[in-house]
Design a binder for these strands. Sequence first.
DNA 1: CTGAAAGCGCTTACAG
DNA 2: CTGAAAGCGCTTACAG
Lengths: 334, 334
Amino acid sequence: MKKVSLKDIASKIGVAPSTVSFVLNGKAKEMRISDALTKKIRSEAKRLGYMPNQIAVSLRTGQSRIIGLIVEDISNNFFASLARSIEKELEVYNYRVVFCSTENSELKGRELIRMLSQQQVDGYLITPTPGMEDDIRQLIEAQVPVVLIDRYFPAVGAPYVMSDNFRAVTEGMKHLLQKGYKNIAFITVELDLIQMKERETAFREAMYKEQGISAPQIVKLPFQISAQDSVLAITDFLKAHPETDAVFFATNYLGIAGLECIKNLNLKIPDQIAVMCFDDHDIFRLHTPAITCLRQPIHEIACNATGLLMQQLSNLGSTIPEPPVTTLVIRQST
Amino acid sequence: MKKVSLKDIASKIGVAPSTVSFVLNGKAKEMRISDALTKKIRSEAKRLGYMPNQIAVSLRTGQSRIIGLIVEDISNNFFASLARSIEKELEVYNYRVVFCSTENSELKGRELIRMLSQQQVDGYLITPTPGMEDDIRQLIEAQVPVVLIDRYFPAVGAPYVMSDNFRAVTEGMKHLLQKGYKNIAFITVELDLIQMKERETAFREAMYKEQGISAPQIVKLPFQISAQDSVLAITDFLKAHPETDAVFFATNYLGIAGLECIKNLNLKIPDQIAVMCFDDHDIFRLHTPAITCLRQPIHEIACNATGLLMQQLSNLGSTIPEPPVTTLVIRQST
DNA sequence: CTGAAAGCGCTTACAG
DNA sequence: CTGAAAGCGCTTACAG
């Protein structure tokens, strides 16, 4: 396991390091190196257990073959699945992934970009936090490949992949209204990001168009609130609004907090209160009763995003694909 | 955002790159560089937005300041929490972490070690798969810092951190037996790893000592079984053994599969069947009824492991700490 | 057919 | 007080 270098092999055989490099990089033919020498070098490399030093390769070639993936929170089910999907996808292209979480902190987000940039990543896949616009713009200007995921900045010309949040929530609301729920509350997070806005707007429109309600119940929790405090806040709301017959949670972690509240308050789902959530989670499937949700096509999002990134890495123009389509998964909670 | 190098700063000011390097690395005093020059260099570096190229630094210093963390499955709650805890801990020491999952495949495990070694990681934190013994031994022989987590190989002298599996299961069993459960089944996975063996042995001993049963019900699922197939297998078992009044799941993913089975079979917890699980999970807390579990002290495991690794990185001998203590969390399922 | 040389961006012993 | 030079391990244009 002692580190073996090209030079070691070369000196062992009595040949120049460059020759070894050519052979081991499959350029023996191209460089018209004799079959005998090629074989000898190959077997010696194997015998010594040679593995190229990626750091040196990266420095020399200017390519690290590493992609920085910045998500909101890698411990969140949605982002974890997305991350794995992206990792698998990028493996195909022979790129590795470094994962990082912003936890929606602007400061942490920019620090991560700095850090990844020092590590010389070849490109970025980012679910940006509010306030990250300038950093993204700088990356774009510096011609660094970057793709935004799950949200984007309309003012910045960065390629992005975002599912059809508006259409999805509209479909979810249609389902709730069809089932006869009237006092529907929307629990969301105070986050200045486009996907959250689209979800909220869709909720507002549905309530207005279908019910004529122009100021529906919307609870906005501060972002970066702890899970515990979310539970308190949602509990307070439900206590104060006993007429609520359905809640629509705008993210899966809000939904999970909400289920805890409903459990504590001893409310029966769906008889006393119906529940619907944006994004799926194991917990929703296993919950009694199981929770209806809007499931984003994670694999498709991952493929689109990596595809866009690869286009940039190979200097092809990138064409924003159609928004991936979210599915309404009807379970027993509605 | 154009990449700025030491040389750029040096030539801008008309000074040697080495001088800039000294200043930026806080060695100005040591090298007796004038305050005036120092200030000038500092401000110019800032103005140009200089960030050192980590790849070059790594190549030159022989230190990547990256630790490879190989876990069984990063999407599993237990390992995800552990990974985050470790990441936070290592940040303090100014080390970054690269995460990888083996999915208990020996092949994948060794490939990951190879890959990380090419990336020149400075050390390893590994939850090894069966069959990885030789690879670990090689690392140790090559004097590469490595710490095993969650399990270890008795035959290999690698430092490790493993919680008190035997004591934990013994405590869990005591609780079940006290509650009066008799026909307790143990659902585990067919995996030749010490922590799983300890859990099983503790179960056997408890059943024998307390109940005089020398061949208790133990279901061993093949490792790498899909979640779906686990559900089928556990369902079959429960159907075939209606006398079972309690199940002890040896890992949290088995517990989650088990809950699905119990739900499908419409068995009431804990009246018809009690449930206890090794490792906690959000799902267990939120489940109705909530599930009793044995919770490993993740933070402590992370601290111990990083501590051991840091000792090795600074060439101190490493002293295996006491096994972290698992807590019995009693909920409504028992 | 093969080798010597330059250079990626840095750090550090050495020399003045 | 400051600079020139070597070298980390590789790749690749160049020369023969």
